[in-house]
Design a protein around this nucleic acid. Sequence first.
DNA 1: GTCTATATGGGGATAGAC
DNA 2: GTCTATCCCCATATAGAC
Lengths: 231, 231
Amino acid sequence: MLFKIAAHRGRKSPSRIRRKNEQLILSAAEEEFARHGYKGASMNSIAVRAGLPKANIHYYFNSKLELYAAVLSRIIELWDGTLNKLKADDDPAVALPEYIAAKMRFSREQPLASRIFAIEILNGAPNLVGYFDEEYRRWFRSRTEVFRAWAQQGRIAPIDPAHLIFLLWSATQHYADFACQIRASIGKEELTDDDYDSATRTLTQVVLRGCGVLESEKRFSTGCTGTTGGG
Amino acid sequence: MLFKIAAHRGRKSPSRIRRKNEQLILSAAEEEFARHGYKGASMNSIAVRAGLPKANIHYYFNSKLELYAAVLSRIIELWDGTLNKLKADDDPAVALPEYIAAKMRFSREQPLASRIFAIEILNGAPNLVGYFDEEYRRWFRSRTEVFRAWAQQGRIAPIDPAHLIFLLWSATQHYADFACQIRASIGKEELTDDDYDSATRTLTQVVLRGCGVLESEKRFSTGCTGTTGGG
DNA sequence: GTCTATATGGGGATAGAC
DNA sequence: GTCTATCCCCATATAGAC
């Protein structure tokens, strides 16, 4: 089992100091892994950032890989849930903007988590073999069904649900993962709240209009689902 | 100067064997860097993949960093140009689909290049300091002007150009960079031509509709550019 | 639980024969 | 130009004193 945290074996509950140090280490590790990737981050730099001797890192997390797995595991917990809030009987004109806003907020507030996850995927997700399984596929399929239902009810245009989800994921995560290029493009040292607001507004606008939600809704009320199904 | 290839100093033209070996090494390096990142890739694994002794890699490219710079440089050459084809007096209904199709084709045909670039950006682009400069910013600004012109002429809805470009970049590159997650999501071992076609179609549809190009074009012919300008 | 000192291996780089 | 053998550093991991 990959995501088990190995430390404090055989104790009822972790001591306060243990919990504090584990949090310190995990935060430092997140920062280092996000900045340099798995190989690029060193246990030493993590220790320095955490303000602890290197050996203590090994005391709490037996190996570098276990520490990385713990970081990943923490990220995954943060991850899921947002997309689950979308329900077939929601109003897409309300639910979609909320989803986009939530994802953008995540990119703004947890860019490190987003980047670590992105690097892991880019490398072929070697440490997520237990995550991308049959259950994940079923979960994804259940999410596409929401969009399919909306389309069938004529509440959005008949759009391939899987690719629409990929569009939502990529466009929002881009602001965390490619922040450096974005800053260079618009010539700013740091992105401001206004930048994130206008990014959210633009994306929402394009997606809503692109799904036929913003204007001429009646156009899709004929119940046509037609040619573009299946992901 | 970062991107100069250091080998064959002081010769008029590289020999045939030199050129062949350099290509072998560059291709092998691309594969390894894309799979494991800069630190994660070893000169040894690159040598094995290229079918050459490790020392020869050092003979052609003095250091690992120089080899990596050469790989990056090759990618950048492939990169630019696509977005340059968009002109203010093009018809967005034609030019946008063409641009999306070109970017999707790139993700399909050069996924390794896309991934290496993505990893570099994710790590804060430490080796692209000479690339994301003032000139890059001016180039980007000139690209946003095309969209701004379209909006002013009422040919697309008044959408923030910078964020629209980011949307186009992220959504298309996603199919190269996150291919692994996409495969897991839709439950396929490999993405087919059909998958790429339907991805291209879906994205084109959403963007064109989202920009108000597909339907009710007259709606934006009032010359309103209004509230959403500026990147 | 904490920390210093050290063992061990991998990887970048080079010397030098051919 | 090519390739084997080797150097040396750095990073993970551990031993063992406190």
